[in-house]
Amino acid sequence: MNAAQLTAPAPDPLLYLDGVSVVFDGFKALNALSLIIDPGELRAIIGPNGAGKTTMMDVITGKTRPTEGVVRFRDHDLTKLDEASIANLGIGRKFQKPTMFDKLTVFENLELALKAPRGPLACLRWVLGGGDRARIEQTLEEVGLASRAHDLAGVLSHGQRQWLEIGMLLMQDPELLLVDEPVAGMTDQETEHTAALLVRIAGRRSVVVVEHDLEFVRALGSKVTVLCEGSMLSEGSIDHVQNDPRVIEVYLGR
């Protein structure tokens, strides 16, 4: 093995944020944030309330335009694209506050998320094929909602809404999954199940998880990024960041 191979550059990053700032009325929600996510990587992001974790996802998904900085997905400049185009590039998102379509059934919510042509005419002509049905049913099993398939999403409990949104994310089959606080409102057992699920998805897909639950983050066994006041405070293994004095001061020590 020669030296050139040993120092071979990392694969091209899937997601690349550099110097990203977001200013709301003079308040810097993100402050020169840089972040690189590799293909297949699982990354946990932690940080105190108001650190800018959700704002970072807003910037990546086109909901919020950065005041300055570079946001790239493969070779696409995400700051120039709208939400739908970004989603169609292969970026799926689970929102912190689970959001779905309450007047549609669980099954129909998954059907809308299912990867398929998105235009009005395609939707008008759409017929649910056997393969699609099988995929939806498999996801229903995965997220434990098989018995609720034909209930309206509006009647689900908070925990079940979390699961439905995770299910919708799976149906989209995105290349990058942005998962904002998935285990809030879940039982310990469900939390474990979610961690195992995300670990399984990563590898084939890149997954970025924001979570406050450190037990859960530990179970992910991934690299951890600590955000604080809109920029990166620390990065490394969970043990590394938990022993980082700066992290203890602003976050863990509270």
């Binding site: 998904t61 739908a84 989603a87 998102r93 959001t99 379509f101 549609l104 998105r118 919708m168």
Partner: peptide, 15 residues
């Protein structure tokens, strides 16, 4: 119906 009830969420699904 999804657009009627949660327009912005529909966009994040790629519609």
């Amino acid at each position: 119906v999804a657009i009627r009830d949660a327009e912005s969420r529909v966009r994040f699904l790629g519609y």
